[in-house]
Simulated assay, not measured.
Amino acid sequence: MSAQQQSLTERRKAATQLDIARAAAALFAERGPDATTAEDIAHRAGVALRTFYRYFRSKQDAVGPLLSGGAERWRALLEAAEPGAPLLGVLEQAVTDALAAPDDRAAEQLIGTRGLLRAAASDPALRAVWYRVNQDSEERLLPVLTRLAGPDADELEVRLAAAAATDAVRVALESWAKTEAPAAGPGSPAELAVRCLHELMGGMRLFRP
């Protein structure tokens, strides 16, 4: 298989996974996880049940691509940044852009995330997916921050920064999910995440001038 064919295959797989994830999220919002089966999700997504299980082990796993979407956007923005700029400012701008809701579609995605986080409060399996998504995000963020911090940065401080940055976004989203605050503006995920970044990272040497 050529590189081009492989790339097309991977895109098709990712698109199918996202279709299944959206179907799962919609059904969880309508019925709740307990009243939703893998068969229901596969039917809503328009795929065979065997296709569902090719990509996901359980119905809760199916929403992973949606829950990880914000982290992937944030990481992509950080990967595009150049070393040398104040790291806290770079993190703030990236998280603000990643969690922004400039249009109805972006706002709808955040509202969907709020519904999933609310459902996770009473569903241990769904909560485990959320924690796994955050752990994966932290691990993927570490090499990005290592590059941005530069070769002289202390390895322990960079690791702490990756953990704190991930937790800042997680806590912001979880706190927002408990409210009826809008997806943009005061009380939004972006605003809360920036506040959490300041609170968690303000005392770190890595972020001092």
Rank of each mutant, 00 (worst) to 15 (best):
E139Y: 06
Q93F: 04
L116Q: 09
L8G: 03
A190I: 04
L88C: 02
A168S: 15
V63F: 11
A177Y: 00
L117D: 01
L66R: 07
T96W: 04
A25S: 15
A62K: 07
G64C: 02
R12I: 13
Y131R: 12
L206K: 05
T9I: 13
Q4G: 08
D154M: 13
L200S: 11
L87Y: 06
P151Q: 09
Y53R: 06
F28Y: 12
A25T: 10
R127W: 08
T113E: 10
D104Y: 04
E39K: 09
M1I: 13
E108D: 12
D61Q: 15
F207S: 03
A119H: 08
L49Y: 14
P33G: 12
A21Q: 02
I20H: 03
Y53H: 14
D97E: 15
P151D: 12
A190R: 03
R118P: 02
A26W: 04
P102T: 11
R208K: 13
K178F: 05
L160I: 10
A149I: 06
T96G: 07
R127I: 00
R170M: 06
E174Q: 15
V63Q: 05
R205L: 14
A48V: 11
Q5Y: 09
T36F: 09
E79I: 08
T146R: 13
L206G: 01
P151V: 14
D104I: 10
A119V: 09
R127M: 13
L142D: 01
H43K: 10
S175K: 07
G203K: 07
N134E: 09
L8K: 13
Q4S: 14
A26K: 09
A184T: 01
Q5A: 15
L66K: 05
E155A: 15
P86N: 11
A125S: 12
P151C: 05
Q93N: 08
A21L: 09
D123M: 10
A168F: 06
E157F: 04
R132Q: 13
L117V: 05
G185C: 04
V129M: 11
A177P: 02
R205Y: 08
E92F: 02
A94G: 06
L27E: 05
T16W: 03
E174I: 04
P124V: 13
